[in-house]
Design a protein around this nucleic acid. Sequence first.
DNA 1: CGTGCGCTTGATTGAGCTCAACGCGCGTGG
DNA 2: CCACGCGCGTTGAGCTCAATCAAGCGCACG
Lengths: 265, 265
Amino acid sequence: MTLPQVSSISPISGPKQSAIPASLHQIKTHCATCSMHDLCLPVGLSEADISRLDDIIRRRRRIKRGETLYRMGEKFQYLYAIRFGHFKAIQVESSGAEQITGFQMSGELLGLDGIATDIHQCDAIALEDSEVCEVPFVQLEDLFREIPGLQRHFHRMMSREITREQGVMLLLGSMRAEQRLAAFLLNLSGRYAARGYSANRFQLRMTREEIGNYLGLTVESISRLLTKFRQQDWLKVEQRELEIVNHDELKKLISGTPDEDCSNA
Amino acid sequence: MTLPQVSSISPISGPKQSAIPASLHQIKTHCATCSMHDLCLPVGLSEADISRLDDIIRRRRRIKRGETLYRMGEKFQYLYAIRFGHFKAIQVESSGAEQITGFQMSGELLGLDGIATDIHQCDAIALEDSEVCEVPFVQLEDLFREIPGLQRHFHRMMSREITREQGVMLLLGSMRAEQRLAAFLLNLSGRYAARGYSANRFQLRMTREEIGNYLGLTVESISRLLTKFRQQDWLKVEQRELEIVNHDELKKLISGTPDEDCSNA
DNA sequence: CGTGCGCTTGATTGAGCTCAACGCGCGTGG
DNA sequence: CCACGCGCGTTGAGCTCAATCAAGCGCACG
């Protein structure tokens, strides 16, 4: 029940907890002081508007590692903005096969899959102890009518999710194993960079199994590829600790067509 | 240069052109009389509200087979509601590799990928002579503030696009070739059924090449699989003409895990 | 101190790719 | 009118990349 340890993730620009009385912290969520502020919210939103948003976000939820935030088939009521932590979203097929459709991190939104039918279409599971803001969607939609900038921002976030998934389709549909893993690692790298963390050193929050599942590969393949990348001095890997040593080679690998000869044919 | 043969797709409930003066047809789009009405619009929208929507849709566009509706990199301004016809959306990679991320048909929306950055992220190409309504997005967002039901409906459509893509990720990430094709055919079947066409007999609007690209397989694989399905009497195929004979076997194939023994282990 | 999970590595297999040839229908031009 | 080329589809043969199967290691945790 303590305050989230925002300091532990140490964004480049730390929260400015300036003049807000401590007592208020317990009843308001304070988007204004959230470190993920500028990922969740449009730039230039007024103090007053932020406060109105705060007003409808009545609850924060802590989700421990391995726990589910919501499950497929449950009624959809809330969107969740991740304050800190990591999640995976998984789709379970009738046969029982699981497919991870995404890994979400702080500043990203969970629950968009539920809007279509008012029923969640996938499970969201915490990869580590995490915290989310619970945003009642009906009230959020009401607020859109009063804060056009917020509406626009929300549409952008949904659209970004659509294009993100299109990128994954490209990956799954037309890349070979090496390329998939390289693309995955660079994607993580970029997202950490956008959050003010190192683009080159970070911790994998998911197992090899989960990476493989996401990329349409097996654990063994992931393991072998990581070994290979390490041997080529493109990365350093030790358990979950990862360092990207040769960003460029990984990039080349992705865009490099199987037939390299087309460069000066 | 002839008119698209709307009659050839013969929806169950044809447009009711009742009492509207012919002259008006040229300046208004008339969602009310569009046969895709109930796919595009929320149920229970008032006449007045529909008319307001009509007012912002100033243009219909005809797109001939093979022409692009919009291209990656172009400025995003409009959403497009397909009145009739079929499109494919393709993502082009830096290396030049193409990936088809979806096939859209009448009553579906195109352009959602552009909202995030105001730049289209993929190409939309007509698979046959088609017609779309051009909806200026900025004005549509304004309208959302005044017609909550329309806002809600739009959010549902975006969310449906997200879950649709998640389904494709499941397909690409964890299904074998047979299952992918079966899932694809049943998906088409369901969508035609929802439009009042036959669920079991329809025409493929795309080449084998395009199907393969979409499913992460080669033309040859698609061809072989179609032959196989035909030999098992699950389908009849002749050129683009397709009839699903054994719906159930196809369904079983999809959900059937490779190891069948887990049913009563 | 065992037990299990996550990870790695090796050996083998096989699904789907690649390459190649061919057929068919259709439009185009001689 | 036929010849030709071309796009689309089919089929076969061989190969390859990643899956599967199998074994073992190390660390965390009861």
